[in-house]
Amino acid sequence: MEQGTVKWFNAEKGFGFIERENGDDVFVHFSAIQGDGFKSLDEGQAVTFDVEEGQRGPQAANVQKA
């Protein structure tokens, strides 16, 4: 798993971006967030995640709040 920081996340649209430790950004969809209840992330929040190849390039999977 990688570690990163939430760059931004739009809860209304259900997606955002995580900044990886290497400085690259990776797309995150709310469906990739682990846990119960409303799935959202806060700007600046530390997270761990896997990276999978999506239809439009790399995207975060198995996102967990650190």
Rank of each mutant, 00 (worst) to 15 (best):
M1L: 13
M1Y: 11
M1G: 11
M1H: 15
M1K: 15
M1I: 13
E2H: 15
Q3V: 13
Q3C: 08
Q3Y: 13
Q3W: 12
G4D: 01
G4Y: 01
G4A: 03
G4M: 01
G4V: 01
G4C: 02
T5K: 14
T5G: 03
T5I: 11
V6W: 03
V6F: 03
K7I: 06
K7F: 03
K7Y: 03
K7A: 05
K7Q: 04
K7H: 05
K7D: 01
W8S: 04
W8D: 01
W8T: 03
W8C: 05
F9Y: 09
F9Q: 01
F9H: 02
F9M: 03
N10H: 09
N10R: 09
N10K: 09
N10I: 06
N10G: 04
N10A: 08
A11P: 12
A11W: 12
A11F: 11
A11H: 14
E12T: 14
E12C: 10
E12M: 14
K13P: 02
K13M: 12
K13W: 11
K13R: 12
K13V: 08
G14T: 03
F15E: 03
F15T: 03
F15H: 07
F15I: 10
G16M: 01
G16C: 02
G16T: 01
F17D: 01
F17Y: 07
F17L: 05
F17C: 04
F17M: 09
I18C: 02
I18A: 01
I18P: 00
I18K: 00
E19P: 01
E19D: 07
E19R: 15
E19F: 13
E19N: 11
E19G: 12
R20W: 10
R20C: 06
R20H: 06
R20L: 07
E21C: 09
E21Y: 12
E21H: 12
E21P: 15
E21R: 13
E21Q: 10
E21I: 13
N22Y: 13
N22I: 12
N22H: 12
N22K: 11
N22V: 10
N22M: 11
G23V: 05
G23I: 04
G23E: 09
D24Y: 10
D24A: 11
D24T: 14
D24P: 15
D24G: 12
D24I: 12
D24L: 12
D24R: 14
D25T: 12
D25N: 11
V26M: 08
V26N: 01
F27I: 03
F27V: 02
F27R: 03
V28F: 11
V28T: 04
V28Y: 04
V28Q: 01
V28H: 00
H29V: 04
H29E: 03
H29N: 03
H29K: 03
H29F: 09
H29R: 04
F30D: 02
F30R: 09
F30H: 09
F30I: 07
F30E: 04
S31H: 07
S31W: 06
S31V: 05
S31T: 12
S31E: 05
S31M: 08
S31P: 03
S31Y: 05
S31I: 05
S31G: 05
S31K: 10
A32I: 03
A32G: 08
A32E: 05
A32N: 08
A32V: 07
I33W: 04
I33N: 02
I33R: 00
I33Y: 03
I33G: 02
I33M: 05
I33S: 02
Q34E: 10
Q34A: 12
Q34G: 09
Q34P: 06
G35Q: 11
G35F: 08
G35P: 05
G35M: 15
G35H: 09
G35L: 08
D36M: 11
D36G: 10
D36W: 10
D36I: 09
D36N: 10
D36E: 13
D36K: 14
D36S: 13
G37M: 06
G37W: 06
G37S: 08
G37Y: 07
F38C: 07
F38I: 10
K39M: 07
K39E: 05
K39N: 06
K39I: 06
K39L: 11
K39R: 12
K39Q: 09
S40K: 12
S40Q: 09
S40P: 04
L41P: 02
L41K: 02
L41I: 05
L41T: 03
D42A: 10
D42F: 11
E43P: 15
E43I: 13
E43S: 14
E43N: 13
E43L: 13
E43A: 09
G44N: 07
G44E: 04
G44W: 05
G44S: 06
G44P: 02
G44C: 06
G44A: 05
Q45M: 14
Q45I: 10
Q45L: 07
A46I: 14
A46N: 10
A46K: 13
A46C: 09
A46Q: 13
A46H: 14
V47T: 02
V47W: 01
V47I: 06
V47P: 00
V47E: 00
V47L: 04
V47H: 00
V47N: 01
T48E: 07
T48D: 05
T48L: 11
T48S: 12
T48V: 11
T48I: 12
T48Y: 11
T48H: 07
F49L: 04
F49E: 00
F49V: 01
F49I: 02
F49T: 01
D50V: 14
D50T: 15
D50G: 09
D50N: 15
D50L: 14
D50S: 15
D50W: 14
V51A: 04
V51Q: 04
V51Y: 06
E52P: 03
E52N: 09
E52I: 15
E52C: 08
E52F: 12
E52H: 13
E53G: 08
E53M: 13
E53F: 15
E53Q: 15
G54P: 04
G54A: 08
G54I: 04
G54E: 05
G54M: 07
Q55W: 14
Q55I: 13
Q55H: 14
Q55T: 14
R56I: 06
R56P: 06
R56E: 06
R56W: 14
G57P: 05
G57Q: 04
P58T: 11
P58V: 09
P58N: 07
P58S: 09
Q59P: 01
Q59W: 10
Q59V: 12
Q59K: 09
Q59R: 09
A60C: 05
A60H: 00
A60R: 00
A60S: 03
A60V: 03
A60T: 03
A60L: 01
A60Q: 00
A61T: 14
A61L: 15
A61Q: 11
A61G: 08
A61M: 12
A61H: 12
A61D: 04
N62A: 05
N62Y: 07
N62L: 05
N62K: 08
N62F: 08
V63C: 04
V63F: 00
V63T: 03
V63W: 00
Q64Y: 11
K65L: 09
K65Q: 10
K65W: 08
K65G: 10
K65N: 10
A66E: 10
A66D: 11
A66Q: 13
